[in-house]
Design a binder for these strands. Structure first.
Lengths: 130, 130
DNA sequence: ATAGGTGCAAATGTTTTGCTGTCAA
DNA sequence: TTGACAGCAAAACATTTGCACCTAT
Protein backbone atom coordinates (compact mmCIF):
# COMPACT_ATOMS: atom_id res chain seq x y z
CA UNK A 1 0.00 0.00 0.00
CA UNK A 2 1.51 3.25 -1.11
CA UNK A 3 0.37 5.52 1.70
CA UNK A 4 2.27 4.51 4.81
CA UNK A 5 -0.24 6.22 7.10
CA UNK A 6 -2.96 3.90 5.87
CA UNK A 7 -3.92 1.35 8.50
CA UNK A 8 -4.90 -2.18 7.57
CA UNK A 9 -8.18 -2.72 9.33
CA UNK A 10 -10.32 -5.81 9.24
CA UNK A 11 -12.87 -3.99 7.10
CA UNK A 12 -10.33 -2.74 4.58
CA UNK A 13 -8.72 -6.16 4.24
CA UNK A 14 -12.10 -7.76 3.68
CA UNK A 15 -13.09 -5.28 0.99
CA UNK A 16 -9.82 -5.88 -0.82
CA UNK A 17 -10.24 -9.63 -0.55
CA UNK A 18 -13.78 -9.49 -1.92
CA UNK A 19 -12.77 -7.29 -4.81
CA UNK A 20 -9.81 -9.48 -5.69
CA UNK A 21 -11.87 -12.63 -5.65
CA UNK A 22 -14.22 -11.58 -8.42
CA UNK A 23 -13.95 -10.58 -12.04
CA UNK A 24 -17.37 -8.98 -12.04
CA UNK A 25 -16.36 -5.33 -11.63
CA UNK A 26 -18.82 -4.95 -8.77
CA UNK A 27 -20.55 -1.86 -7.45
CA UNK A 28 -20.04 -0.47 -3.97
CA UNK A 29 -23.34 -1.87 -2.85
CA UNK A 30 -22.58 -5.38 -4.10
CA UNK A 31 -19.30 -5.29 -2.18
CA UNK A 32 -21.21 -4.08 0.86
CA UNK A 33 -23.66 -6.98 0.65
CA UNK A 34 -20.80 -9.45 0.34
CA UNK A 35 -18.89 -7.87 3.20
CA UNK A 36 -21.88 -8.12 5.52
CA UNK A 37 -21.70 -11.89 5.27
CA UNK A 38 -18.41 -11.76 7.18
CA UNK A 39 -18.84 -8.54 9.11
CA UNK A 40 -22.57 -7.99 9.65
CA UNK A 41 -22.04 -4.59 11.24
CA UNK A 42 -19.93 -3.07 8.50
CA UNK A 43 -21.50 0.10 7.17
CA UNK A 44 -21.98 1.26 3.61
CA UNK A 45 -20.12 4.44 4.45
CA UNK A 46 -17.07 2.42 5.43
CA UNK A 47 -17.21 0.55 2.14
CA UNK A 48 -17.33 3.80 0.20
CA UNK A 49 -14.58 5.38 2.28
CA UNK A 50 -12.30 2.41 1.76
CA UNK A 51 -12.99 2.14 -1.94
CA UNK A 52 -12.12 5.80 -2.32
CA UNK A 53 -8.90 5.43 -0.33
CA UNK A 54 -7.85 2.31 -2.16
CA UNK A 55 -8.47 4.02 -5.49
CA UNK A 56 -6.49 7.06 -4.43
CA UNK A 57 -3.57 4.91 -3.34
CA UNK A 58 -3.56 3.07 -6.66
CA UNK A 59 -4.45 -0.25 -5.10
CA UNK A 60 -7.63 -0.63 -7.12
CA UNK A 61 -9.35 1.20 -9.98
CA UNK A 62 -12.64 3.01 -9.97
CA UNK A 63 -14.68 3.21 -13.15
CA UNK A 64 -16.99 6.01 -12.26
CA UNK A 65 -20.43 6.40 -13.69
CA UNK A 66 -21.88 7.72 -10.50
CA UNK A 67 -19.92 10.72 -9.38
CA UNK A 68 -20.48 13.90 -11.27
CA UNK A 69 -23.18 14.75 -13.74
CA UNK A 70 -24.02 14.17 -17.35
CA UNK A 71 -22.78 16.45 -20.10
CA UNK A 72 -24.57 17.04 -23.35
CA UNK A 73 -23.31 17.47 -26.88
CA UNK A 74 -25.35 18.77 -29.79
CA UNK A 75 -23.31 16.56 -32.09
CA UNK A 76 -24.86 13.09 -31.82
CA UNK A 77 -22.20 11.45 -34.01
CA UNK A 78 -19.64 9.49 -32.08
CA UNK A 79 -16.42 11.41 -31.56
CA UNK A 80 -13.77 11.54 -28.89
CA UNK A 81 -13.32 13.92 -26.00
CA UNK A 82 -10.65 15.33 -23.76
CA UNK A 83 -11.57 16.24 -20.19
CA UNK A 84 -9.42 18.71 -18.26
CA UNK A 85 -9.00 17.51 -14.70
CA UNK A 86 -8.15 21.03 -13.57
CA UNK A 87 -10.91 23.27 -14.94
CA UNK A 88 -13.40 20.57 -15.83
CA UNK A 89 -13.83 21.74 -19.40
CA UNK A 90 -14.41 19.20 -22.13
CA UNK A 91 -12.94 19.45 -25.60
CA UNK A 92 -13.71 17.68 -28.84
CA UNK A 93 -10.84 15.77 -30.36
CA UNK A 94 -10.36 15.93 -34.10
CA UNK A 95 -9.46 12.30 -34.62
CA UNK A 96 -11.01 9.88 -37.04
CA UNK A 97 -13.07 7.09 -35.55
CA UNK A 98 -11.50 3.69 -35.00
CA UNK A 99 -14.38 1.90 -36.67
CA UNK A 100 -12.50 -1.39 -36.95
CA UNK A 101 -12.06 -1.54 -33.18
CA UNK A 102 -15.64 -2.66 -32.79
CA UNK A 103 -15.10 -5.59 -35.15
CA UNK A 104 -11.95 -6.57 -33.31
CA UNK A 105 -13.70 -6.68 -29.96
CA UNK A 106 -16.66 -8.46 -31.51
CA UNK A 107 -14.36 -11.29 -32.61
CA UNK A 108 -12.39 -11.40 -29.38
CA UNK A 109 -15.43 -11.50 -27.14
CA UNK A 110 -18.07 -13.02 -29.37
CA UNK A 111 -20.27 -10.11 -28.41
CA UNK A 112 -22.29 -7.77 -30.54
CA UNK A 113 -20.53 -4.41 -30.29
CA UNK A 114 -22.66 -1.38 -31.03
CA UNK A 115 -20.36 1.46 -30.17
CA UNK A 116 -17.37 2.54 -28.17
CA UNK A 117 -16.39 5.54 -26.17
CA UNK A 118 -12.89 6.95 -25.94
CA UNK A 119 -11.97 9.69 -23.54
CA UNK A 120 -8.70 11.36 -22.62
CA UNK A 121 -7.88 12.95 -19.30
CA UNK A 122 -5.24 15.44 -18.31
CA UNK A 123 -4.48 19.16 -18.08
CA UNK A 124 -5.60 21.41 -20.91
CA UNK A 125 -3.33 23.94 -22.58
CA UNK A 126 -4.63 26.92 -20.63
CA UNK A 127 -4.42 25.26 -17.23
CA UNK A 128 -0.78 24.34 -17.82
CA UNK A 129 0.15 28.02 -17.76
CA UNK A 130 -0.71 28.31 -14.09
CA UNK B 1 -36.56 14.60 -35.23
CA UNK B 2 -36.97 10.86 -35.48
CA UNK B 3 -40.03 10.40 -33.30
CA UNK B 4 -43.02 11.87 -35.11
CA UNK B 5 -45.09 12.10 -31.95
CA UNK B 6 -42.61 14.52 -30.46
CA UNK B 7 -44.00 18.01 -30.22
CA UNK B 8 -41.83 21.03 -30.75
CA UNK B 9 -42.51 23.18 -27.74
CA UNK B 10 -40.99 26.52 -26.97
CA UNK B 11 -38.98 24.94 -24.18
CA UNK B 12 -37.63 22.13 -26.31
CA UNK B 13 -36.65 24.48 -29.11
CA UNK B 14 -34.85 26.73 -26.66
CA UNK B 15 -32.91 23.87 -25.11
CA UNK B 16 -31.82 22.71 -28.54
CA UNK B 17 -30.81 26.22 -29.54
CA UNK B 18 -28.75 26.70 -26.38
CA UNK B 19 -27.02 23.38 -26.79
CA UNK B 20 -26.23 24.05 -30.46
CA UNK B 21 -24.81 27.47 -29.76
CA UNK B 22 -22.03 26.24 -27.48
CA UNK B 23 -19.07 23.94 -27.75
CA UNK B 24 -18.74 23.61 -24.00
CA UNK B 25 -20.51 20.27 -23.52
CA UNK B 26 -22.66 21.74 -20.79
CA UNK B 27 -24.40 20.08 -17.88
CA UNK B 28 -28.17 19.99 -17.47
CA UNK B 29 -27.99 22.65 -14.81
CA UNK B 30 -25.95 25.01 -16.97
CA UNK B 31 -28.50 24.65 -19.75
CA UNK B 32 -31.23 25.30 -17.20
CA UNK B 33 -29.59 28.53 -16.06
CA UNK B 34 -29.20 29.69 -19.65
CA UNK B 35 -32.78 28.78 -20.51
CA UNK B 36 -34.14 30.79 -17.60
CA UNK B 37 -32.79 33.94 -19.20
CA UNK B 38 -35.35 33.51 -21.97
CA UNK B 39 -38.03 31.54 -20.15
CA UNK B 40 -37.81 32.41 -16.46
CA UNK B 41 -40.46 29.87 -15.51
CA UNK B 42 -38.89 26.87 -17.16
CA UNK B 43 -38.27 24.08 -14.68
CA UNK B 44 -35.25 21.91 -14.20
CA UNK B 45 -37.44 18.86 -14.63
CA UNK B 46 -38.42 20.04 -18.08
CA UNK B 47 -34.78 20.49 -19.01
CA UNK B 48 -33.97 16.95 -17.89
CA UNK B 49 -37.03 15.49 -19.62
CA UNK B 50 -36.15 17.19 -22.88
CA UNK B 51 -32.50 16.26 -22.75
CA UNK B 52 -33.48 12.65 -22.22
CA UNK B 53 -35.98 12.70 -25.09
CA UNK B 54 -33.57 14.43 -27.44
CA UNK B 55 -30.88 11.88 -26.59
CA UNK B 56 -33.26 9.01 -27.17
CA UNK B 57 -34.29 10.37 -30.53
CA UNK B 58 -30.67 10.76 -31.60
CA UNK B 59 -30.89 14.52 -31.85
CA UNK B 60 -28.16 15.08 -29.28
CA UNK B 61 -25.68 12.97 -27.35
CA UNK B 62 -25.47 12.42 -23.63
CA UNK B 63 -22.11 11.71 -22.05
CA UNK B 64 -23.23 10.31 -18.78
CA UNK B 65 -21.19 10.50 -15.64
CA UNK B 66 -24.18 10.93 -13.42
CA UNK B 67 -26.59 8.11 -14.05
CA UNK B 68 -25.67 4.79 -12.58
CA UNK B 69 -23.02 3.95 -10.07
CA UNK B 70 -19.31 3.38 -9.93
CA UNK B 71 -17.77 -0.02 -10.54
CA UNK B 72 -14.55 -1.20 -9.03
CA UNK B 73 -11.73 -3.29 -10.43
CA UNK B 74 -8.98 -4.89 -8.40
CA UNK B 75 -6.65 -4.44 -11.36
CA UNK B 76 -5.45 -0.83 -11.19
CA UNK B 77 -3.56 -0.99 -14.50
CA UNK B 78 -5.35 0.69 -17.37
CA UNK B 79 -7.17 -1.78 -19.58
CA UNK B 80 -10.30 -1.72 -21.68
CA UNK B 81 -13.81 -2.88 -20.90
CA UNK B 82 -16.94 -4.10 -22.57
CA UNK B 83 -20.28 -3.32 -20.99
CA UNK B 84 -23.33 -5.40 -21.85
CA UNK B 85 -26.35 -3.16 -22.27
CA UNK B 86 -28.66 -6.09 -21.62
CA UNK B 87 -27.43 -7.73 -18.42
CA UNK B 88 -25.19 -4.92 -17.21
CA UNK B 89 -22.17 -7.14 -16.79
CA UNK B 90 -18.73 -5.76 -17.49
CA UNK B 91 -15.95 -7.71 -19.16
CA UNK B 92 -12.24 -7.12 -19.45
CA UNK B 93 -10.93 -6.87 -22.99
CA UNK B 94 -7.64 -8.52 -23.82
CA UNK B 95 -6.27 -5.80 -26.03
CA UNK B 96 -2.92 -4.08 -25.78
CA UNK B 97 -2.97 -0.46 -24.72
CA UNK B 98 -2.83 2.26 -27.36
CA UNK B 99 -0.05 4.09 -25.56
CA UNK B 100 0.75 6.31 -28.52
CA UNK B 101 -2.78 7.70 -28.54
CA UNK B 102 -1.95 9.92 -25.59
CA UNK B 103 0.97 11.47 -27.45
CA UNK B 104 -1.18 12.05 -30.50
CA UNK B 105 -3.82 13.91 -28.54
CA UNK B 106 -1.16 15.80 -26.65
CA UNK B 107 0.19 17.18 -29.93
CA UNK B 108 -3.24 17.87 -31.42
CA UNK B 109 -4.57 19.71 -28.39
CA UNK B 110 -1.42 21.02 -26.78
CA UNK B 111 -2.67 19.48 -23.58
CA UNK B 112 -0.92 17.26 -21.10
CA UNK B 113 -2.59 13.88 -21.45
CA UNK B 114 -2.31 11.57 -18.46
CA UNK B 115 -4.52 8.70 -19.43
CA UNK B 116 -7.40 7.57 -21.56
CA UNK B 117 -10.39 5.36 -21.14
CA UNK B 118 -11.84 3.13 -23.83
CA UNK B 119 -15.12 1.32 -23.40
CA UNK B 120 -17.23 -0.78 -25.70
CA UNK B 121 -20.99 -1.21 -25.50
CA UNK B 122 -23.28 -3.84 -26.90
CA UNK B 123 -24.80 -7.23 -26.21
CA UNK B 124 -22.62 -9.93 -24.69
CA UNK B 125 -22.41 -13.44 -26.04
CA UNK B 126 -24.79 -14.93 -23.53
CA UNK B 127 -27.48 -12.29 -23.94
CA UNK B 128 -27.52 -12.80 -27.70
CA UNK B 129 -28.92 -16.28 -27.21
CA UNK B 130 -32.19 -14.92 -25.87
C1' DA C 1 -1.05 7.65 23.35
C1' DT C 2 -3.01 9.04 19.20
C1' DA C 3 -4.00 9.59 14.44
C1' DG C 4 -6.71 7.28 11.54
C1' DG C 5 -10.91 4.31 11.14
C1' DT C 6 -15.67 2.73 12.25
C1' DG C 7 -20.88 2.73 12.54
C1' DC C 8 -24.73 5.34 12.26
C1' DA C 9 -27.69 8.65 10.45
C1' DA C 10 -28.32 12.83 8.25
C1' DA C 11 -26.97 15.56 4.37
C1' DT C 12 -25.71 16.19 -0.43
C1' DG C 13 -26.30 16.70 -5.31
C1' DT C 14 -28.02 15.01 -9.55
C1' DT C 15 -31.74 13.06 -11.77
C1' DT C 16 -36.51 11.15 -11.89
C1' DT C 17 -41.35 11.14 -11.09
C1' DG C 18 -46.40 12.03 -9.64
C1' DC C 19 -49.70 15.26 -10.24
C1' DT C 20 -52.49 18.78 -12.24
C1' DG C 21 -53.11 22.00 -15.54
C1' DT C 22 -51.76 23.52 -20.41
C1' DC C 23 -50.86 23.70 -25.34
C1' DA C 24 -49.14 22.07 -30.08
C1' DA C 25 -50.90 19.50 -33.81
C1' DT D 1 -60.06 17.72 -29.29
C1' DT D 2 -56.53 15.30 -27.05
C1' DG D 3 -52.34 13.17 -25.94
C1' DA D 4 -47.91 14.94 -25.22
C1' DC D 5 -45.78 18.27 -22.37
C1' DA D 6 -45.07 22.00 -18.77
C1' DG D 7 -44.28 23.56 -13.90
C1' DC D 8 -43.86 22.35 -9.30
C1' DA D 9 -42.43 19.80 -5.48
C1' DA D 10 -41.41 15.54 -3.55
C1' DA D 11 -38.98 11.29 -4.16
C1' DA D 12 -35.26 8.49 -5.55
C1' DC D 13 -30.68 7.34 -6.02
C1' DA D 14 -25.74 6.76 -5.23
C1' DT D 15 -22.42 8.88 -2.58
C1' DT D 16 -20.45 11.88 1.13
C1' DT D 17 -20.00 13.68 5.68
C1' DG D 18 -20.43 15.00 10.83
C1' DC D 19 -20.05 13.00 15.05
C1' DA D 20 -18.84 10.18 18.97
C1' DC D 21 -16.59 6.09 19.86
C1' DC D 22 -12.92 2.64 18.76
C1' DT D 23 -8.40 0.46 17.45
C1' DA D 24 -4.09 -0.48 14.81
C1' DT D 25 0.34 1.11 15.21
Amino acid sequence: MKNSTMRMTEQRALILKILRSTKSHPTADWIYQEARKSLPNISLGTVYRNLRLLSASGEIMELDYGSGYSRFDSNPENHYHFLCQECGRMFDIDLKLFADLNDLVEKTLGAQVKEHRLEFYGICRECQKH
